[in-house]
């Protein structure tokens, strides 16, 4: 397949960026999207040019590191798929593909397609945990949890923290990410003691980090590679309200 790529190039956070066009005459349909970038970078390096910087690590859709905005969609055209799991068989010979970094003021650009998502870490550090020191735990089966609740908590916990929800949201809101963690822990008996404090602290830091507000458009749910549901946002909103009343 012949593929034309228009890729965002930006030397660092301080300099302006622009699109560069590259043509790849011979792309195999079995390649992953990132392997196509490997091939392009190999070519650029051999010509002595600067290769395109992009984040990636596990290449099996679970680490959450890859983060390309492809033809106006986070992680590209397929639903439930990270960029590393997107294969070229889903494109056509002759296609032109536009590739950009995540764009959100809370995710500043580092270089080319790499952005800084450490704001997510700081939200978790504010309260995305259960306070239990090593060695304090009771026997695992002494806390029976209805299967349905455990399964729901798992669905929320499946979030990979990639930031597609923020990138795709017109307000660059992090509500889906934050609510997935709030919801996971709110659904479990172990999470109850800190339930109200947790949601308040996490929302506070989320706002400080410069993420936008949620207007319930649902774009985040559509683009989430792990299918995290909007229900979690509803649950978080309820918990947040209750936590304010409790105070």
């Amino acid at each position: 397949m012949k593929i034309t790529l228009k890729v965002w190039r930006q030397q660092n956070g301080k300099t302006p960026g622009n699109f560069n066009t590259y043509t790849l005459p011979d792309v195999s349909e079995d390649m992953s999207f990132l392997e196509m970038f490997d091939v392009l970078n190999d070519e650029l390096i051999r010509k002595g040019e600067d290769p395109i910087a992009f984040d990636h690590d596990c290449r099996e859709g679970i680490c959450g590191m890859c983060s390309m905005y492809i033809n106006g969609r986070a992680h590209g055209p397929l639903t439930g798929t990270t960029t590393c799991q997107l294969h070229m068989r889903h494109f056509n010979d002759g296609d032109t593909i536009v590739v950009e970094p995540w764009r959100a003021s809370a995710f500043p650009i580092i270089k080319d397609l790499m952005v800084d998502r450490s704001a997510f870490d700081r939200v978790i550090q504010a309260g995305g945990f259960i306070s239990v020191n090593t060695g304090n735990a009771v026997d695992a089966n002494s806390i029976p949890i209805p299967k349905e609740d455990a399964d729901k908590a798992f669905d929320a916990a499946a979030c990979i923290g990639c930031g597609a929800c923020v990138a795709t949201c017109k307000n660059a809101s992090a509500m889906l990410f934050v609510s997935a963690k709030v919801s996971q822990l709110a659904l479990l008996p172990q999470g109850q003691p800190e339930r109200h404090l947790r949601v308040k602290k996490m929302v506070e830091v989320m706002d400080e980090e410069g993420f936008g507000n949620c207007t319930n458009t649902g774009a985040c749910e559509v683009e989430c590679p792990k299918g995290i549901s909007l229900d979690h946002i509803a649950r978080m909103n309820r918990d947040y309200l209750v936590s304010n009343i409790v105070d």
Binding site: D139, A140, A150, L185, G191
Partner: peptide, 12 residues
Amino acid sequence: DQCVAQGVPFAR
């Protein structure tokens, strides 16, 4: 035990 206490959602 430790992981369950942290909220790790193992299969049940």
